[in-house]
Amino acid sequence: MIVLSTLVSGVLLGGFYALLGLGLSLTFGIMRTVNLAHGDLVVLASFLALAVTQMLGLSPLVSLIVLVPVMFGLGYALQGLVLNRVLKDGMMPAVIITFGLAFVIQNGLLMGFSADRMVLRQGTLETAGVTLLPGLTVGVLPLITLGAVLALMAGLQLLFRYTLIGRAFRATSDDPQIAALMGIDPKHVYALAMGLACAIIAVTGVLMGMRSNFSAFDGPIRLIFAFEVIIIGGMGSLNGVLVGGMILGLSQVIGGALNPSWFQLTGHLATLAVLIVRPSGLFPETIDRS
């Protein structure tokens, strides 16, 4: 029973990680660059949700109505006004700018909110559980999260496959110069992609903020987990994100069960192992290539 509940909690933790990896995978798939402020944007979303719930008296899940468009706009502006300006100079400027942004966000949050650990409260939802078997109870929040990941992945699939703008995303990811010849403005597409990623980050920030408490300096570790998810799942592969999240969640939970201080370490080692055995990940580039 202990084994089973360990596995189940690993899988459920994996849902959070998959969500975390989804936004990063999207920007990598389309722009071929890693946003080093990804984790800090997730934490920023958690703090914004906190502010919205306090100011407007909304519950965290309802606050998404405000948060998703705000984060979308923020992402669009980040790409459109800042990152698009350095596109032609290779990946180094984007890496350095997003690294700098990470420090701006962390310390901005520190000053704006304090160094205390915060948590989002949605009534009793965080602690609610469903008993599947005697002795095996599953939290409602992880189930919601898993559902959110699946819904977002399906939505992205539909978008990429069946809409004109979705095809424009894929065309731009394949070959931005030729996409421009089709009348697509690659910079607009990039900004939309970053906006979309930040909208997903809003959902991530709220769900993760309800799962456990957060502080201004939690961004880097979230970035690392998100990165590990896409390394394991295969770079630029949206479907790989789900499996990548599960493997990371399972290896952390199993490591933590063996020795509590190994929790993160085993996750990192699993990632490095994948890098050694299959450097292109378990599912190299599947979705947006389909």
């Binding site: 990946m91 770079m235 990192h268």
Partner: peptide, 21 residues
């Protein structure tokens, strides 16, 4: 084995592993 930005984050993961170890 990694290119560009992936190289960047992977160097960080290695440092993180050492810190935890």
């Amino acid at each position: 084995r990694l290119q560009g930005a992936y190289f960047a984050v992977a160097t960080w993961v290695i440092a993180e592993v050492l810190r935890l170890a």
